[in-house]
Design a protein around this nucleic acid. Structure first.
Length: 152
DNA sequence: TCTGTTATTGCGC
DNA sequence: GCGCAATAACAGA
């Protein structure tokens, strides 16, 4: 299988994607990347025109991948909503501390929506910049609200 | 093995 | 509010 790389704009950041076929291998953030082709679902998601990545899927969900259960649980959080580290831990049958480690090591943010996992007292962390997490949550919340998925 | 790492939480003051 | 201990699970040596 052939491995492809592309980069897409999100605010001040560039989202760099590595994939092959429908399998996403890696998603990283950078400031300097030139824009180039990425899968349509990702481009649309980043401009609030798409709510899921089907049929794309993350390598983090494949058999034998470390923290697979945690990533699977996180993937089930609906667009525009959040869960806490403790809630994820309870569902996945592990410890909230472990959820933090798994999020930090998540190879594919966005695809596995780790930005929807927040702490009880605040937004929680995000590498390389919590500003990205805030921007993603704002975008999702606003979009979901305007489509009537969230009422508040 | 053993040590370091970690995007949390809850309790006591 | 702040400091701190508890504590799961993986990477790297």
């Amino acid at each position: 299988m052939e491995m492809k790389t592309g980069s897409c704009r999100f605010g001040l950041w560039r989202v760099r994607v590595v994939w092959s076929e429908n399998l996403i291998h890696k998603v990283t953030f950078s400031r300097t990347e030139e824009e180039s082709f990425v899968p349509k679902q990702i481009r649309l998601y980043l401009t609030a025109k798409n709510m899921d990545f089907f049929p794309l899927k993350s390598i983090a969900l494949s058999d034998g991948y470390p923290y697979r259960e945690i990533y699977k649980t996180v993937s089930e959080i609906p667009y525009g909503l959040t869960k806490t580290y403790s809630e994820i831990a309870e569902i996945a049958g592990t410890h909230h501390r472990t959820v933090g480690v798994a999020m930090k090591r998540n190879p594919t943010p966005l695809i596995v929506p780790c930005h929807r996992v927040v702490s009880k007292s605040g937004i929680g962390g995000f590498t390389p910049d919590t500003g990205i997490k805030k921007a993603l949550l704002d975008m999702e919340k606003q979009n979901a609200k305007s489509l009537g998925f969230i009422i508040d």
